[in-house]
Design a binder for these strands. Structure first.
Length: 263
DNA sequence: TTCCATGTTCCGCA
DNA sequence: TTGCGGAACATGGA
């Protein structure tokens, strides 16, 4: 389930389990996950090294490979996940790359649908620049002024803008819908007709919601029942206002919203 | 069997 | 230049 809150959770998981351990062996089980890099190069650059730190930008996870002047880059596509264990038999069914550490434990990158990417890059900053990724909404330096400037001189639907990684990096279909639901804004409203108060509501609610989801993931807790997340079905009753949940396609993605309170 | 899925990219058109 | 619809990618679950 990889949008920003999930990738943040994976980053913390990676940090907890996989840092400062010697990489004894790298197993690439399906080369289609590797993107541009050749399997031999990938394995050779990692074997014998160790991950020194991990950071996230948007939906991307980067881990520094000590002494090799390179970073592991993970993108989770639609179905990517991480699993760390010492259990030799327990490797997940859809493990595509497995890092084996010299203490016998392993970290698997699993991705059933193979839309994810595992590769090596020069540095996170270089990657972010090259792919023109927008700011991360939970970056401490990301302010309302910065957010408002992203909306200036744009005309499209607010949902399209919030989903575009070159503008803002991290939200996907689920959490854009959640943000707009919680701020009572219709996903097709165009950016140029939003009031400053509405822009502020989006900024504030989006960040509070993302932090809330991360905290709940960390605790293994479910999302609140009044979140749209649990009501993504046409005809469901809106837990906020009793209206009816509608389904539409916006920016090419199935979109759920309350036909009554989202305007 | 058919439709749908938390993502990204590329192409074509307005 | 910006915005957006559509298709493609690969696979399993309802």
């Amino acid at each position: 389930m990889p949008e920003l809150p999930e990738v943040e959770t994976y980053t913390r998981y990676f940090t907890r389990h996989a840092l400062e351990q010697k990489i004894a062996r790298v197993e690439v089980r399906d080369e289609r996950i590797l993107g541009e890099i050749r399997k031999e190069t990938f394995v050779k650059k990692l074997r014998g090294g160790a991950f020194k730190s991990a950071r996230r930008h948007g939906k991307h996870l980067f881990a520094e490979v000590g002494g090799k002047a390179t970073w592991l880059h993970l993108h989770f596509g639609m179905s990517g996940d991480l699993a760390y264990s010492a259990d030799r038999e327990g490797e997940p069914r859809f493990a595509r790359v497995v890092f084996h550490f010299d203490n016998g434990e392993w970290l698997a990158f699993e991705d059933m649908r193979l839309f994810g990417v595992v590769e090596l890059v020069q540095s996170p900053d270089e990657y972010i620049a090259e792919h023109k990724l927008g700011p991360d909404p939970l970056d401490p330096k990301f302010t309302f002024a910065r957010f408002a400037s992203l909306l200036e001189r744009r005309r499209g639907a607010i949902k399209s803008l919030l989903m575009t990684q070159e503008i803002l990096a991290g939200l996907g279909n689920l959490y854009v819908d959640e943000t707009l639901y919680q701020t009572a804004i219709h996903p097709r409203r165009t950016v140029d007709e939003l009031s400053k108060a509405e822009e502020n509501a989006i900024f504030t609610t989006m960040r509070r919601m993302l932090r809330d989801v991360i905290t709940r993931h960390e605790r293994g807790a479910a999302l609140p029942s009044q979140y749209l997340y649990h009501h993504r079905e046409e005809g469901e009753r809106c837990p906020k206002c009793g209206g009816t949940i509608q389904r539409a396609v916006v920016f090419g993605r199935t979109t759920y919203f309350c036909g009554k309170h989202q305007r």
